[in-house]
Computed example of a mutant assay.
Amino acid sequence: MTDLSAFSPENPLILAGCGNMGGALLNGWLRSGLSPDAVVIVDPVMAEAGSAPSGVACYAAVTDLAPTLAPAMVMLAVKPQVMEAVAAGYVEMVRRSGAGVISIAAGVGLASYEAWFGPSTPLIRVMPNTPSAVGAGMSLLFKNAAVSDDLATLGEVMLSAVGACIWVQREAQIDALVGVTGSGPAYVFLLIECIAAAAEKTGLTPEEAKLAARQTVYGAALLADQQPEIDAAELRRRVTSPGGVTQAALDVLMAPGRGLPDLFPEAMADGERRNAELSGKT
């Protein structure tokens, strides 16, 4: 099966880690029809708090799971710093059940997972982002040679439940794009901050200014999304009257050497360098 019905109480999806991103993905799957009894969470914080979604089993540690459990898939959704230790707890289970493994950790490459689980284990690396929490995420996927077409389709279904997804051809593309699609929402939030600050200076209350900023960004994004045949540059030009208010502002924002077209590549390069440092590739 290549939809969420591939998971069942007998062959569940194990979600190792259910923080912000893991929780966003889980909520998306449940909205899309995943049966609560077809997923098992392993998360000590959630287990202690008793805050798992209704009907979803949650355990504090992998050692609490039944030794005969045969998952159809294991998703590793923990921080990169603890990934090796967490993954070690699932190696025997994955090898025994033949389950595929999906990871959403930044900076941990497939070579590491193949070293832990073995190169014959189907492995998918995913870079999602936080708008997945509202079903509007953007995820990048990369798979190793052991992933079958059906498993790749299932992985795509899982990520499509929380937004759009793209398969990349080279793993290096995920590392290069961590600072683009992964971190991208932060840049948009900064833009909202800046628009709100400018709006407040005109006399709007702080709440009115925040509303104006959010709606401006949301409306522009929705317009671009609903007219994909028109590129962003053309949409920008349609708002910009020569010699007008928008043009004057854009002359500052696009100024050679100090405007966004020059600052953005510089920012992305710094982000890529930091990702390489965190993943031990420097």
Rank of each mutant, 00 (worst) to 15 (best):
S51A: 15
L235P: 05
G257W: 13
I166K: 12
L211W: 10
P71M: 02
L4H: 05
L235Q: 09
L76M: 11
S54C: 13
E277M: 11
M75D: 03
G182I: 02
E114H: 07
A233G: 13
L34M: 10
S5R: 10
A196E: 04
Y187A: 00
M93D: 02
P242Y: 05
V86G: 09
G19I: 05
L15G: 00
V162R: 05
L154I: 03
A88W: 14
R125H: 05
F142P: 00
R258V: 11
L260S: 06
A115T: 12
A47E: 09
W167Q: 11
L222C: 11
L260Q: 06
E193C: 10
C58V: 03
G19E: 09
A88E: 14
V39E: 02
A6E: 04
V126M: 05
A105F: 15
P228T: 07
A255F: 09
M138Y: 08
C165G: 02
G55R: 07
G179K: 00
E92K: 11
G244W: 15
V126G: 01
V42Y: 01
N27P: 08
P256S: 12
R170E: 07
Q81P: 05
N144F: 09
A133G: 07
V74L: 12
A60W: 13
K210T: 15
P80I: 08
Y218W: 14
L190S: 09
A213M: 07
A186G: 03
Y218Q: 11
S183D: 02
P12A: 03
G135H: 08
D262K: 11
F142A: 05
A49W: 15
V245G: 13
S139D: 04
P71C: 06
A233E: 13
V56W: 03
R214F: 14
E92S: 10
A198G: 10
V39R: 02
A47H: 08
S54M: 13
L15I: 06
V82E: 12
A77G: 03
D270K: 12
A221Y: 06
V82I: 11
A85I: 14
Q226V: 07
